[in-house]
Design a protein around this nucleic acid. Structure first.
Lengths: 329, 329
DNA sequence: TTGTAAGCGTTATCAC
DNA sequence: GTGATAACGCTTACAA
């Protein structure tokens, strides 16, 4: 007795069960079949170890249960956590995740888009940096942190409120002179609102503050120079810093240590992201925490409901503050 | 003039170009067609913005140019870097990556396997922890760090040699009493060889050493207790530690600092992995560096050549030592 | 309920 | 070289 090497098809199952393919298909798709047939089909499926060929099904139904996740990199903690949560959320909905990494390269972004189309994926969740990459209008798309097109929905944290919270918190903790530090891509995105919210809150409170913004700088050197120039004998003329990201906050903290400035005694520091550090399981600095799991969940839901014609253009999720040693509480 | 919403098919192209589908198909697949037809087909494809439907193609050819990457988590630096490199390597070969995260859960691993089969993926690259998950024998598989089945090839770093190197290095740096620390899953894997190589090198050198191995412990507490009990007034009775992973090395380093033990003055510390820290771009401790990009590349190549009947059962890639502040050099 | 049969968009085998 | 045409494995009217 020789076992065929080709995987069993629905036809094989039908033959084995003594019913027609139609019946097998209906059973497989959860459509009512007579109890007797059901049992025979079930037995046949088990016996042959049958599994639906999703390519054949996809060809027929134009549904592939497959979504693309486009990310610039994976090695920054926020992105790897986001990827983890998005795959989990997609999985829960019965979708698979095709991972695409662009390295911030516009060319790569374009390649991804055409791949998505060619592979007839059901949707895209994208965090892209090139404002000019064009997405196939026939494919549902949800972006994270960056608005792509007016008709697409973008999911992000409430960056604006997060910026406000950071300023309010630093002031409530007694800071007299605030600093905002931001480094990153110069393409505008929802993330910019962190600074805007911060500045607004400072103005509202009548606080003394300064905004230091570096677009597309390769290094933090300009920040470091500022810190040096505004620190005399280990005493800085500022006492509260809000950084665009935890990463930057931690880098700044190290620099301050080099300058003999103590955190949080001399300067209090708040970052943004709140992704658990892999060594300790908690954020490594006081921070505005993004709800990454909800971000993922929301993006997935928005994607799968993209047909609903009243798709929101922006969905913001609430952030919260967590103290982790770089503020005095 | 109304544009059809359905994407154009090969039939549409054929009609537009005034040739048969056969000719279009041949053109698309790089099979020689007459120059005249070629031009007309090209024009039609451009005009209709046609792209091959890979599901129809996959149905026909049983090739999907799609591989699964199964990983326990993504939030540990080694895994996210590995995922990045694997996707890149697969991309270079024209393959897409379907990402699956198991959270170390055997059930999830099984789900992944059946998904892979159902979706007719061309292969699997897996880093799994359950020795009992069965992989479909008809699907090519390459594992990383853990041997699954005798007939499958496993790709890993030269963990054994890495362990030796760590011991040799610590001894060469003047250490008199060595410690090996390992925490992790109790399923045996190539990673175990780090300790074995270390121990062998210690014996060979006639060095004084101790092996502290925690399988499936949730915490490092037993290690910490050891450190405390073997340290009097900030003076430990050991002076060289090799940790299973950089992560553990960094955690131990912090604990030593708490105990008033200086690294590398009192104790020298070597980890394993060598993944760049996202803050500094370099490993955060002296370490045995795994060649992650080559690991990925090799795994992908092995996967795509899996038909070659002389598939090796284990491929080890060379590691190297890098000093990053926790050793005296 | 169930069986039959016509596609879905390709590729591949034929004759021409 | 090229054009018909039969699969590939499935879903889904339509008839029974």
């Amino acid at each position: 007795m020789t076992v065929s090497d080709a995987p069993p098809t629905m036809n094989d199952v039908a033959r084995e069960a003594g019913v027609s393919v139609g019946t097998v298909s209906r059973y497989v798709n959860g459509i009512a079949v007579k109890d007797a047939s059901r049992q025979r089909v079930e037995a046949a499926i088990r016996k042959l170890n049958y599994q639906v060929n999703s390519y054949a099904r996809g060809l027929k139904t134009n549904k592939t249960y497959c979504a693309a996740l486009i990310l610039p990199v994976l090695t920054l903690p926020f992105f790897s956590l986001l990827a983890e949560e998005v795959t989990a959320a997609l999985n829960r909905k019965g979708y698979r995740t095709v991972l695409m990494i662009t390295n911030y390269d516009p060319e790569a972004e374009r390649t991804c888009v055409s791949m998505v189309r060619q592979n007839k994926m059901d949707g895209i969740i994208a965090l892209t940096y090139n404002p000019r990459t064009e997405f196939d209008p026939t494919i549902p798309l949800v972006s994270i942190d960056r608005r792509c097109e007016a008709s697409r929905t973008c999911v992000s944290s409430d960056n604006y409120r997060g910026g406000e919270m950071a300023a309010e918190r630093l002031l409530a903790l007694g800071c007299k002179k605030l600093l905002f530090l931001r480094i990153g891509s110069d393409v505008s995105s929802e993330v910019d609102k962190r600074g805007i919210g911060f500045e607004t809150a400072c103005k509202t409170a009548g606080a003394d503050y300064e905004m230091l913004i570096l677009s597309d700088s390769e290094t933090n050197e300009p920040f470091y120079r500022y810190l040096r120039e505004h620190t005399a004998d280990g005493v800085p003329d500022f006492d509260g810093i809000f950084c665009n990201t935890d990463r930057l906050a931690l880098q700044i903290q190290r620099k301050l240590a080099e300058l003999g400035v103590r955190v949080p005694e001399d300067v209090q520091l708040i970052g943004f992201d709140g992704v658990p550090d892999y060594l300790t399981g908690a954020p490594a600095c006081s921070t505005i925490v993004q709800p990454v799991a909800q971000l993922a969940e929301t993006a997935v839901n928005a994607l799968l409901n993209a047909d609903a014609d009243a798709a929101p253009s922006l969905i913001c999720l609430p952030v919260h503050f967590e103290a982790h040693g770089t503020t005095r509480e």
